[in-house]
């Protein structure tokens, strides 16, 4: 089970009215390397991974939902006051005709989320390597969004999220080392 804290992991501030940025942020909302995919991937892999790293997957998977909530807040702030015309100019007319300004798990190109984005191979090394790759892809996606955005406050939040991906990748790399080491032998590296 989970406990919920009714606040964001990091304060979300957006200072320019630029709904186009909401469209880009959807890549991290419902995209292949987005926060939803990350959370679902890790929390689902927990059941078939060696005990020593289950807790890590729980922690990171849970944190990804906190990131998802930040992305949702960014998208919401950027679209909540936008008129249909502004959304059209932002390339979000297709989104509008289907969802109004409701959030939906689409990527930046409007492709809906699918479970096919994630994997659970059941092989611990294969799964952890996929997780490392997923973190690097999420880090890169944040970079490309920062490159496209000139909102300093939004970028501040995106930089925080990007840094978390670096730390997650580090922890998954450590998880590989933990499950690779030979339990019966004491080794000093």
């Amino acid at each position: 089970m989970w406990t919920y804290e009714k606040k964001l992991m990091y304060p979300v501030k957006v200072s320019t009215c630029n709904p186009t940025l909401a469209k880009y942020l959807m890549e991290q909302y419902g995209g292949a390397d987005g926060e939803l995919a990350a959370a679902l991937r890790y929390l689902n892999q927990r059941y078939t991974i060696p005990d020593k790293v289950i807790g890590l997957l729980t922690d990171i998977g849970t944190e990804e939902f906190a990131h998802l909530e930040m992305i949702a807040t960014m998208i919401y702030k950027l679209t909540k006051d936008a008129t249909p015309e502004q959304l059209r100019k932002a390339g979000l007319a297709e989104h509008y005709v289907s969802h109004d300004s409701a959030l939906f798990y689409n990527n930046a190109a409007g492709v809906p989320f699918t479970a096919a984005y994630i994997q659970a191979k059941g092989d611990p090394i294969a799964d952890l390597y996929e997780d490392i790759a997923a973190e690097e892809k999420a880090r890169a996606t944040y970079q490309w969004i920062i490159d496209q955005s000139d909102d300093p406050d939004l970028n501040d939040g995106l930089r925080f999220l990007r840094e978390r991906e670096i730390v997650h990748s580090q922890r998954f790399r450590e998880a590989v080392e933990i499950i690779s080491e030979d339990r019966d032998q004491k080794k000093v590296f």
């Binding site: 990091y10 944040y142 920062i146 490159d147 999220l161 990007r162 840094e163 978390r164 730390v167």
Partner: peptide
């Protein structure tokens, strides 16, 4: 809390190159 990591060696500030 600001940077997103407790450990200085993991910190990498990113901006559009």
């Amino acid at each position: 809390l600001k940077t997103g990591t407790l450990w200085t060696p993991f910190y990498d500030y990113y901006d559009n190159p």
